[in-house]
Nucleic acid binder design. Structure first.
Lengths: 169, 169
DNA sequence: ATCGTTGCAAACGTTTTGCATAAGG
DNA sequence: CCTTATGCAAAACGTTTGCAACGAT
C-alpha cells in the first residue's frame, strides 16, 4: 500500500496549507478546531502515501502517550478530511484506503495483486472518454475511480527468476 | 442496485449454459455437483441484475422451506461462481456486488449517488487506454474496474422539478 | 468408503454508535 | 455557558470459520 516513489506525479501549487484549508472548512461549518484534528492533519500530510485507518493508527502515539487519538476519532476525522476535500478515499479488499487529494492531481491506479502496491498514473484521454460517456447518458459526473488489477513489473521479474531457479533443481 | 433495462448491453452467444459451464468447472477441480450449487446457478442466472449476497438471500426460500440455502453456503458459492468465471464482483459502499460475467460483454458502470442505480456502458477506447498505460509501466493486466460516480438523468430531472416546485411556494 | 459440502453457531475485521466527560467558541 | 468533540465500551456490519453431520462420487 506504499506509493512507488518513481511513480510520483508531483504536486499542484495551492494557496493554503492543508491545515489552513481544514481550519477554514471547520469554521465555515461551525465545527471546532481541536488538538486531535490539528494533529491528524499534520500527520496525514507529513508524507504522501496511501493508507487505511489501521495503518494510520499504528503510526500514531499509543494510549497514554501525548497526542493519543482514539480509534473512533481517527475514523470520524478521516471522514471529515474527505468531506473537506483534503483526502480522497476508495475501497480495496474490503477496507477504505485514503490518499491526498488537496494539492494533488487527479489520477488512477494500477494495483499489483502480488505485492499489493498501488502505482499511480494519469492520462487526459481517460477524462475525455468519461466525459463523452457521461454526456451520452446525460449523467452528471462527480468523480470516478479506475483500478487496473494485475502484476507489476517487479513482481513479474521476480516470478520468472523463481521459475528459472526451479528449472535448475 | 438494479440494472437499467434500457442500458442493457445485450449478450454474447456462448456454447454452454451457465449450469453446464459450472458443472464442467466443478468436475475439472474434483468438486461436487450439489443441489444447492445447481439451484443457485439457476436463480442467479434467471435474471440479469446487479446484486449482493443479502439481496440474493432475500429472494431465496427461507429456512424450513424447500431449496433453503444457508448464508455461509451462499457466500461460499458466490465466490466459486467468480472463480468459475460465471460472475464478476466489485465493491460498492463496503459490500461485494455481483453481476453476470459468463456470456456477458465486459463493461463499466455509472453509479447514481441519488437512486443508487448502476448504469452499464461499454467503450473500446477505455480498453485501449488501459492497455497503453499498462505497457508503459510494464504492468500485466488481469482486469479493471471503473466506476463513475454522479447523478443520473432521471434524478437530475427530479431534483430540478422539486426546486421549481419550491420556488412557487 | 471416502472426502468434499452443508448448516449451525460463533468468530472475524472493519467501522460505527450511545453515552458520559472534556474542552472549544 | 453552551455546544460540539472525545474516549470508552459495546454494537453493528458484512463476511468467514471450525466443526459435526450429511451426501456425492
Amino acid at each position: 500500500m506504499e506509493v512507488d516513489e518513481q511513480e510520483s506525479l508531483g504536486s499542484v501549487p495551492v494557496a493554503l496549507s492543508p491545515l489552513e484549508r481544514f481550519e477554514e472548512y471547520l469554521q465555515s461549518r461551525g465545527q471546532r478546531n481541536t488538538e486531535q484534528r490539528r494533529y491528524l492533519v499534520e500527520r496525514v500530510f507529513s508524507h504522501h502515501e496511501h493508507f487505511d485507518a489501521d495503518q494510520l493508527m499504528e503510526q500514531l502515539p499509543r494510549k497514554g502517550h501525548p497526542n493519543y487519538v482514539s480509534r473512533p476519532t481517527v475514523y470520524r476525522t478521516l471522514k471529515e478530511f474527505v468531506d473537506a476535500g483534503l483526502l480522497r478515499s476508495f475501497e480495496l479488499n474490503g477496507r477504505a484506503v485514503y490518499e491526498h487529494d488537496y494539492g494533488y492531481p487527479q489520477h488512477d491506479h494500477l494495483y499489483c495483486e502480488k505485492c499489493h502496491k498501488l502505482i499511480e498514473f494519469r492520462t487526459e484521454a481517460l477524462t475525455e472518454i468519461i466525459a463523452s460517456i457521461a454526456q451520452l447518458h446525460k449523467f452528471r459526473i462527480r468523480g470516478h475511480r479506475l483500478t487496473v488489477d494485475g502484476v507489476c513489473d517487479a513482481c513479474s521479474k521476480q516470478r520468472s527468476r523463481e521459475r528459472r531457479r526451479q528449472d535448475r533443481v
